[in-house]
Each structure stands twice: as C-alpha cells, then as structure tokens.
C-alpha cells in the first residue's frame, strides 16, 4: 500500500477544499471498499479526507413528507429506521440484502453509492482493465464475466454496479444532494451514474472534490386500497447471504381497477448503473395489470441486452424476476 496522508476536517467546506486542492485525494467514510482497493493497489490516493464524522448523520422527514438521509448514516442504522421500514420497505430490504452485518455497521450511505465494481479484472492490478488503466484493454469480455453487464456496456468495459441500495433508490425516485468547489447541486440518483462508453474510468458524473451530503426521497407512493406502500426489493444470488446480486429488482406498483396506475421498476446486476426500466414503465402505464402485460413490458426493456458467452442467463433471470415481483405486488394490491 502506498503511503498516504490522512485528514479529518471539522466541516464540509474544509473537506471540499482539501480534496479539491489535491488531485490524488479521496473522501473516506466507512472505508469498506476503498481500503480494500488500496490494499490491492487499485486505489493509490495521496490524501484521504475522512468525512465520516461530518454532520451528515441524520435521517429526517422533509416538509413534503419525504425523507432526507445524511450521507454518513450507516447502512445498518438506515435499514432499521422506523420510517424507512414503514414507508420505504424496499429500501430496508435492499440494505439488508447487501454485505454482512459487520460491513453494514461500518459502511455509509454515501460510500455505498460510490462503491466500485467488483469485476475481478478491475481488482487485479497484474492484468489490463480500462476502468483502472484507461486504454489497457478489457479481458473480461473473453474471460470471467458471469457476473458482468448485459445492458449499457461498451467494448471498453462490461463492469456492473454492485450497490443494492442504489437500485432501491433508483426505483424510489431519490435525489442526491452534493456539495463541491462550485457550490451545491442536486441530481436525480439515476443521473449520478454513467455508462462506460469510451470513458469507463468515470463511474459517476461527480466532479473532483464533489461530496454527497444527503439522499432525499419523495413521499412514498400509496396504493388506493392500502396505506402501506406496495414496493419490494428482491435479489438473486449464488448463496443466501454475503454475495453480490446476479440480478436484482426494485419495484413500486400501484394497481387501481385492475390497471397499472403507477409503476416504477429498477434492475441491479445488469449494468454499470442501477437500471431504471423507463421503457417498461411506459409500456405498463394504464395497462391491465396482468402477467402477460408484465412479460411484454419487461421484454421491451431487456431487448437492448447484449449478453456475452457466460452472462446470457441474466436476461432470462431478470425477466422472470421482474415479472414475478410485479405479479406478486399486483396480487397484493
């Protein structure tokens, strides 16, 4: 591991100044991914700026009845939060399906959103990787890519985003609040992430020095018949716990008079970002909430899939999972 400096500034402005002024600086929160990558030599920051104790540790209801989640809130705390469990159960499910209890105790919401891909080539500095070393090549296309992307990938990179949280937040229309050298700004969570294109080294649209301060959720949708929001996060994985998603789905569905009144659907495990299925949502809007309609809509969304030798199963898996989740939610309504 390369020697690095460590600073723990007292306020967000100082943190931003420190990182903005040092090209090789990184923000450090829970460190559950960054420190691993430093040990592997994938990340070699010259300065770590610890933001875990900045005043971003609150979960508050907003004036509109939504929820503002501080970026430094730990995953385990958010998963257990009463308002989250009552109003956004899919968010709690997503958090609890990720990592292990120990990691959730350490990892923060902001850090979770910025975790790097677990592509095995990205993590192995003895091999080429366009994300880690732009222009060096992508051995994953021919190599071990069973876990990697089928949507939105490029010839340069087929990495997936592995955050469960981000998938749930994408379906919940979350907004990300940022502060940075040029002031504050906000983005829809789905716009935070980039597809690889020919710049796979850039995971997000964040500028150097920008820091996530909070994530905001609009008020939860309510179904016509029940106060409980109809939403779910479901994850398919190789073992019962402590494994990244092969495919996951976050869905919100409101069925009225047997027709789709509102639907929001996002996939994990398919792309470099949580994949909000807008085409499927549009296709379903106002349509009868039947399994046939779900299948058709999901197929439309997934028609853009470009599978490789070992990851073609994700297409069928994503379709079956999404249809099962939507049918289940429709049945509950």
């Amino acid at each position: 591991m390369k020697t690095f400096r460590y600073e723990r500034p007292a306020d967000p402005a100082a943190a931003v100044t420190l990182v903005a002024g040092t090209p090789g600086a990184r923000y450090l929160a829970g460190g559950t991914n960054l420190v691993d990558l430093m040990k592997l030599g994938v990340e070699t920051p010259e300065l770590l700026v610890d933001v875990s104790r900045l005043p971003f540790g609150e979960v508050e209801e907003t004036d509109t009845g939504g929820l503002r989640i501080g970026a430094a809130v730990r995953g385990s705390r958010l998963a257990a939060h009463l308002l989250v469990r009552e109003r956004y159960p899919a968010l709690s499910q997503a958090l609890l399906s990720g990592a292990s209890a120990q990691l959730r105790n350490a990892a923060t919401i902001g850090g979770n959103l910025l975790q790097r891909t677990r592509c095995l080539y990205f993590q192995d500095v003895s091999k080429p990787c366009n994300k880690r070393r732009p222009g060096s090549g992508c051995p994953a296309r021919e190599g071990a890519h069973r876990d990697l992307a089928v949507l939105g990938a490029s010839e340069h990179c087929i990495a997936t985003n592995t955050s469960d949280l981000a998938v749930a937040l994408a379906a919940l229309d979350a907004t990300v609040h940022l502060t940075g050298p040029a002031g504050v700004r906000s983005l829809p969570l789905t716009d935070l992430y980039r597809l690889p294109g020919d710049e796979p080294e850039r995971d997000t649209v964040l500028r150097h020095g920008e820091l996530i301060t909070s994530v905001e959720l609009p008020p939860p949708p309510h179904s016509a018949r029940s106060r409980a929001p109809l939403m779910v996060y479901r994850k398919v994985r190789d073992r019962a716990s402590y494994a990244f998603a092969l495919v996951s789905v976050a869905a919100v569905l409101d069925v009225r008079d047997a027709a789709v009144h509102e639907v929001r659907l996002a996939f994990g495990g398919l792309a470099a970002r949580p994949w909000r299925a807008r085409e499927a949502e549009q296709a379903l809007q106002g349509r009868p909430a039947t399994e046939e309609a779900f299948v058709e809509a999901v197929r439309t969304e997934l028609s853009a899939c470009r599978p490789l030798r070992e990851n073609g199963y994700k297409l069928a898996l994503a379709e079956r999972l999404a249809v099962a989740v939507l049918a289940d939610l429709a049945g509950q309504g």
Partner: peptide
C-alpha cells in the same frame, strides 16, 4: 474459474470464491 488468457484462477478472495455462509 481457470482464466484461459492468463492461466490463473479468477476468484481469489472470499467475496468471489463462494463457500456456504451460516444462512445457507
């Protein structure tokens, strides 16, 4: 997984080399 291009095993940590956890 033997990686034919490099000649090594691709999974080299407990995140990628899966063994049963308690929940299994």
């Amino acid at each position: 997984t033997m990686d034919p291009e490099f000649g090594d095993y691709a999974e080299r940590d407990f995140a990628s080399y899966h063994v049963a956890v308690c929940a299994d």
